[in-house]
């Protein structure tokens, strides 16, 4: 067991887009073992309080010096709304690093594909990327404001960055998969490995296209989660038939994931609200 439950000091907290915030927490013990694609469970309650009961899972967005962990999150409900009100100087209980991260294949170029808030873990991946391995990133979102900040983070890395928005306010007008097929030409016949995180329908489309191009594809999935440690089996997603890691037919995002090979997932049954 490599994870820890600590109280971390909030050292930075600010809005970077509509409803989107970054949160910097000092937690050296967790920072030390953290790998791209892993997540933490963050307790939003003041000490002694019992509501909201559960911790919230957030992917590690970046790491920094002096034990800094940075998260990027979108306000979607009560928990994230409460979190957004916390000021620097406060503290939070944080459990991590949890789950299995991306497995970087050093022998092949990387194609990082992020959608909306799903770009969060890809920034850590891009920053930890081996220097001598080529990386290309494609970021998509509904509109300019949704992806501007994440795009800037990635533009500061060696990654070549391509952007797409549904409304065409930044980059290509259309889905990330349009750019994915174009990017394939840039690799000049070498097969990249795809590393992706984003909303369900996007991941489904990316996985399908990766399969069409015969590419290895890793996806970071989300599911409603209670413990983050494999205790409750709540965060189930349908596993593809014949995959051994889904020993019950279901994969558990916290324990076997959150990063899976796309072919481990049964995409026909994958819930895409």
């Amino acid at each position: 067991m490599k994870y820890l439950d600590v109280r971390g000091l909030v050292v930075a907290h600010g809005q970077v887009g509509p409803g989107t915030h970054i949160l910097g927490i000092r937690a050296p013990e967790i920072r030390k073992g953290a790998k791209p694609g892993q997540f933490c469970m963050i307790d939003l309650k003041p000490p002694g309080a019992i509501d909201p009961l559960l911790r919230r899972p957030l992917s590690i967005h970046r790491v920094g010096p002096k034990g800094l962990l940075i998260f990027m999150y979108k306000v979607v409900g009560r928990g994230t709304a409460l979190l957004s009100q916390l000021s620097p100087g406060g503290s939070l209980r944080i459990l991590g690093p949890l789950g299995n991260g991306f497995r970087i294949d050093q022998s092949r170029p990387g194609l990082l594909i992020g959608g909306g808030i799903g770009t969060a873990p890809l920034v850590f991946l891009s920053e930890a990327w081996p220097k001598d391995v080529e990386q290309v990133a494609i970021i998509g979102g509904r509109t300019r404001a949704d992806i501007e900040y994440a795009a800037r983070c990635l533009e500061d890395t060696p990654s070549r960055v391509h952007l797409a928005t549904d409304d065409g306010s930044l980059g290509h007008k259309g889905p990330v998969t349009d750019l994915m097929s174009r990017a394939m030409e840039m690799f000049e016949g070498r097969s990249p490995v795809v590393y992706s995180c984003g909303p369900g329908p996007m991941l489904k489309a990316v996985a399908r296209m990766a399969a069409d191009f015969n590419l290895e594809c890793q996806v970071s999935l989300e599911a409603r989660m209670a413990c983050g440690m494999g205790l409750c089996l709540g965060c189930a997603v349908p596993g593809s038939r014949g995959d051994d890691s889904a020993d019950s037919g279901y994969l558990h995002v916290c324990r076997e994931g959150p990063v899976f090979r796309a072919d481990q997932v049964s995409w026909e049954d994958y819930p895409c609200p």
């Binding site: 209670a226 709540g234 965060c235 997603v237 349908p238 037919g249 819930p271």
Partner: peptide
């Protein structure tokens, strides 16, 4: 047993 389909929580 494989359990119920998600969402489970």
């Amino acid at each position: 047993r494989s359990g119920n389909p998600p969402p489970r929580l």
